[in-house]
């Protein structure tokens, strides 16, 4: 069992530490966005210093725009989700 766990860890080592940045030209409410991401199982920190083992990424608020940094290489699902959550607030 231990060996299998070790193999799985080794397999995913190469997939870790590949951060992506998403630059979003809208202002957001960081805490609300954090809650919305939490609902999807993604732990979005409000600072890179808040990182824990469960963190998915962190948000850097720049006033009129915002950047989201992921701790892992983003997937198509992440791209769609960020877009959806950001745009939901803009429309209307």
């Amino acid at each position: 069992m231990k060996q299998i766990a070790l193999i799985l860890i080794l397999l995913f080592i190469t997939a870790s530490c590949l951060a992506d940045e998403f630059r979003i030209p809208f202002s957001v409410y960081p805490k609300e966005l954090q809650k919305q991401f939490a609902d999807t199982g993604r732990k979005l920190d409000l600072s890179g210093n808040d990182r824990t083992e469960d963190s998915w990424g962190f948000l850097e608020n720049k006033g009129s725009n915002v950047s989201i940094f992921t701790y892992y290489s983003a997937t198509d699902e992440d791209l769609s989700l960020i877009m959806k959550l950001i745009m939901e607030r803009q429309d209307g």
Binding site: A15, L18, D20, R23, R51, S73, A74, D76
Partner: peptide
């Protein structure tokens, strides 16, 4: 096949040094 999907190689380092940048 798609951006970031299954990506395993790159030169990413710290979270402040993204290996890909996307703009909305």
């Amino acid at each position: 096949t798609s951006p970031g999907h299954g990506d395993i190689l790159g030169q990413g380092g710290l979270p402040s040094q993204p290996h890909k940048i996307f703009r909305l």
